[in-house]
Design a protein around this nucleic acid. Sequence first.
DNA 1: ATGAAAGCGCTAACAT
DNA 2: ATGTTAGCGCTTTCAT
Lengths: 335, 335
Amino acid sequence: MVTLKQLAKELNVSISTVSKALNNSEEIGEETVKRVKELAELYNYKPNKVALSLKNNKTKTIGVIIPNILNRFLAKVLFGIEREATKHGYNIITCISNESLEKEKESLHLLANGSVDGFILCVAEETQINNEIEHFKKTISNGLPIVMFDRVAHDVMCDKVIVDDFDATYNATRSLILEKRKQIAFISNIDDLSVGKLRERGYNKAVLESEHFKPLVLKIKKKDDHQKKIKSFFKKNKIIDGVIAADSSSGIISLNTAINLGLKVPKDISVIAFASKSDSYHTLPKLTTIRQHAKIIGANATQLLINRIQNIDKTDDVKTIIVKTSLVKNKSTIH
Amino acid sequence: MVTLKQLAKELNVSISTVSKALNNSEEIGEETVKRVKELAELYNYKPNKVALSLKNNKTKTIGVIIPNILNRFLAKVLFGIEREATKHGYNIITCISNESLEKEKESLHLLANGSVDGFILCVAEETQINNEIEHFKKTISNGLPIVMFDRVAHDVMCDKVIVDDFDATYNATRSLILEKRKQIAFISNIDDLSVGKLRERGYNKAVLESEHFKPLVLKIKKKDDHQKKIKSFFKKNKIIDGVIAADSSSGIISLNTAINLGLKVPKDISVIAFASKSDSYHTLPKLTTIRQHAKIIGANATQLLINRIQNIDKTDDVKTIIVKTSLVKNKSTIH
DNA sequence: ATGAAAGCGCTAACAT
DNA sequence: ATGTTAGCGCTTTCAT
């Protein structure tokens, strides 16, 4: 990479002249500007990012810490973050916590050495279970803003972007009740997460407020064989004619298992799941899904963070944006 | 963030003394080292990454450019890259080209300003279609090494990590032939990609060398309705009793569609797809898959790049690592 | 044992 | 219109 120094030497002018010329300063003569720019072009000069970062005490880089890149929702949020960040001239450094508190702490720690201007993160499962928040607070008090999305730590004062999980699940459950379903089950493999609990509560509310209904919940653990669990759940509870799935995998497997057991979908049983569009193609009939608008969540989180970094909002008040879900009806439900 | 300067001031010693003390230099007195370290600990001092990068002319950061983060395989490779990079003290800056040549060029260009020490990338679809390679060559000649994985540009001299796509598909097709299948179809939505073509050729070879067989290929475009395409393909070609899918989506939809059409799997029809373990759970019976060991691919690519950055291999020869696939047999095939 | 100074690449205030 | 200098935070060589 060619530097100002080298250009200056070759042009027999000072470094600052070159710098000013390239930055279109009024001070420099027309002729000189032309010569400088031509040589810079020739050598494909680009200002060294590291030097600029040091000078400005800003890296134009965002640290993103996500628990699991194989989760479609999280991957999509990352996509949204990347796009929005790029739009504003920011790069993203991605760390994957793998749902581990230790790795999350370490990532936060390692990047808090001037590598990034702030963080966007989704709290790791282990962190939520242990309810640890000190590392977040410390980072913020060190002057590095954090924006949390989806799974958030409520006791940390920072900007947040969340989903209306409770309402979404409540409404989805209501819609199955209106289909005159008799026994609606709730199936989840994210019981440990804040959002998993919210979804269950939304389901419970809808079920309990209609007096003829009783909750019926299946919680699947990571190590379980999902297919087996769901199959035996269905066999044991033949009465089930509706499923609300807290995650895409549970939704897809539920529908396919129902069909495997000889049930007609949606005649005998309806299925709704938190899932993406492409997930809905993985069943026949296509799955009715609760869409979380992951890309928008990512974009919102990024905007919040950049605002805070650039201190556009002079207020110190933290903001919480709630991104509304949409219930996208396909053929796995009647209405 | 506290700096050496601040520590020095507070301790009434020079900056270089502090620096040396923290780096366990022999030159500094025991007592001083102790005082310095204690204060550094107290203030949670961390060497500024940007300053170090400038000094060392090394960022310890890798630029990763992937075409699509929603592709499970690519996400998994990214996971492998992140893990291996972290292990070696490297961060990754992720850019998503979105299969666009322009974005790929731009990302390469933007990060070639000292932001990263080298690149790991998977060539964008548009780049492969247009067969553009100048931007890669330019980057390399600017002194930034590139490692390509999966979809590679053969005419660019750089390290590569690829999959044995041809052999894998050939062998998978052979295994269906040995099941005495009569008409094995090949279904792909990645026809434009180098790996898609390799897989088709592997299939073709297996089919053509057994004289009783004829190739039967369905190519799905991005904009198509995958379910409809596959359903009508099956309806038009009732003779199909085996499917080799070049991608997970085609595999899952093929199997579910077959069942939807009343076929028994694997009795009436076998399905094998390039897909991951979790994909195999999205069908009943579980899908027999060709596994690409994405994490290993990511780890290998990272090792190659770090070796080159650190010039551990003094040779200039470029290396190509072929990561072998595994055929993981589940219940969507007989043998 | 400690400190001063130079230099990594850049910008900007301050000379000339 | 052009140049000199200082400084961002750090390491390291070279004084003292």
